[in-house]
Structure formats: C-alpha cells, structure tokens
Design a binder for these strands. Structure first.
Lengths: 147, 147
DNA sequence: GTGATTAGCACTATAGCAGTCCTAAATTAG
DNA sequence: CTAATTTAGGACTGCTATAGTGCTAATCAC
C-alpha cells in the first residue's frame, strides 16, 4: 500500500491531457513544462499509461500523447494501477495464514484494500476535471488557498 | 501511504498480547516464537510501541511487555502510527499548489487519507480480538494455540 | 552474584523510487 | 530525400527506507 510521486505525476499528466482543448496530441515536453515535471521521467510514466491502454501515442513531428477515451471512462484506480501504485498491502507473502493473528490481520488488510480500491475506481478523471475547472474559476477572486 | 511488515508485525504482536490471559508480562522471545517473527526486529517495534504509550515494559528476569490499557482503548491507527506507518501520501512537499492540477490531486490524496485514517482509528484491538477468537472457534480447536 | 530480559546503538544488505542519459525507430515538414 | 521532431526503450546513478543482525549496557528476580 503506497502512494508515491509516480501516482501523483501520472494523475497530473492525465488531468493535463483532459484539460487540453479537443483531442489533439500533446508532446511530453509540453506536459512536463506545464506541470513542472521532469520530462524524461514523465515519459516513462506515459509509456506505462499507453501500455495500459489509457492514452494513445503518435510518433514523429507534431506527435505526442492523447487520451485513449473520454475522461468519464478513465478512473483514478486505473491510472494508479497502470504505473504500479499497487495500493496492495504486502505484495508477496500472504498465503499460510495458519495462525489466528495472521488470518485476522490479513483479512483486515484485504478489506481495507478493497474499500480503497473501490473508492479509487469510482472516481473518474472527469470528476477531477470539474474540480480543477471550479478551482480555476475560484482563482479569479484572487483568494489565497492554504491547505 | 504505505503498509509494510512493520505494521503487520506490530498488529500481530499487539494481538498476541491481548490474547494472553490476564495482564502479566510476556517476553519478546515468547511473542516472536508464537508469531514466527524475528525476535531482534520485533523488539525494535515493541520499543516504539512503548514510547507511544501502547505497551508497558518490565526489565529483568520474568520481565517482558504487556498492554498499557485495555484492547478496547487501543486503535489500529494508533498502532500503525506508532511504528511509522504514515499512511500519509507524499510526506514532504505539498505546499505550492499554484496549479489547478496540483490542488486537485493534493486535496484528493488528503481526502482519501482522512477516510482511511478514520477507518483505522475506529477499529480497536478488541474488535480484532473477537475476530481472532471466532476464527479459532471455527478451526475446531484443532490448531495449537498457546494460551 | 548469576541469569534473564529490556534498552539502545551501530551496522549491513536489499529493494524500490526518482531521475538522467543515450540510442534507435517512426513520422511529419520542408 | 533529408532533417527535425518525438516516442520507445534500455542502461545507469543516487538516495532512502525497510528488513534484519549483532553487540553492549542497564535492570531486576532469585
């Protein structure tokens, strides 16, 4: 169960793509510049996102990446899983739950994981898109946000 | 946001302690043997749990550890936090949310974290204790469980 | 005092994340 | 056709945290 910059960068990039007008391709460099991310690193993530079928790529000049389908049909869970943010507790060993304590803790981890997974899969990129738009609108008031 | 063996071992050890009859002390070695954990490593975790006020220790012969208070008043969240299972996403940087994408993702991580935290703090050691007892009962007492 | 046991520190090894760099392949612009 | 652009993919480095071991001191029961 973890959440690192991989997931953060990936979601930001996907959000960036959905905020682009229409569905024309955007280069890695452009995304990296807008989101202030290291371009070579971001590219790795985009490749993984492409392999997961979440984005499409076009090589060559004027090429780049674009969403493979509408933001409403892309969930956060899919994005995070695509870049290996397992969210899963204790990847390898988990079988032999021959002790009561083992069984209890494992079933607990599993329940928690399932809950979180469901939550992440129920949130679409479109939901975040609207959040972002409303935030941008609120910025018009020049309010200082301190989270 | 992570969940490693530290948390798993700690919960198992705490569960082991609550399954002990009465409130007499148990040595690290005994816990490690019952739960099949590396004793020196487990000791580190118990020291952290002691510093967090979740267990009490008694040095010297016949010494060991015992719960500092009743299992009903010890939550899973307290145990995990005591051993540094932050559960928190992206510990360090998070300020400058000057971009819509940053703000959206950060507020999302924060909401998820809060949810998970609440869930973990609402589960007491006593709840797991009952789960463990019922599992033992379901096993038909065939399994050897040191009481 | 002796043995048992916690307390605390130092140490190693391994793995994954974060990030850079270089080369190849594909495709468009001119 | 050629050159520029851009993705694809691998090799490589530095860092941090986990996981685990080992040793020494302090403490207490007998």
């Amino acid at each position: 169960m973890k959440l690192t910059t991989r997931g953060h960068y990936s979601v930001k990039a996907m959000l960036d793509l959905s905020l682009q007008p229409q569905r024309d391709t955007t280069s890695v460099k452009a995304i990296a510049h807008r989101q202030e991310l290291p371009a070579p690193y971001l590219e790795k993530l985009l490749i993984e996102l492409r392999r997961a079928g979440l984005v499409e790529s076009v090589r060559g000049a004027q090429g780049g990446y674009r969403l493979a389908r509408s933001p409403a049909h892309i969930s956060l869970g899919q994005i995070l899983e695509a870049v290996g943010e397992t969210i899963e507790p204790l990847p390898h060993h988990s079988p032999e739950a021959n002790q009561a304590e083992d069984w209890v803790t494992f079933s607990l981890w599993h329940r928690l994981h399932q809950k979180l997974k469901d939550a992440l899969h129920s949130i679409s990129l479109e939901d975040l898109y609207y959040d972002a738009r409303s935030w941008q609108a609120a910025q018009g008031e020049a309010t200082s946000f301190v989270v």
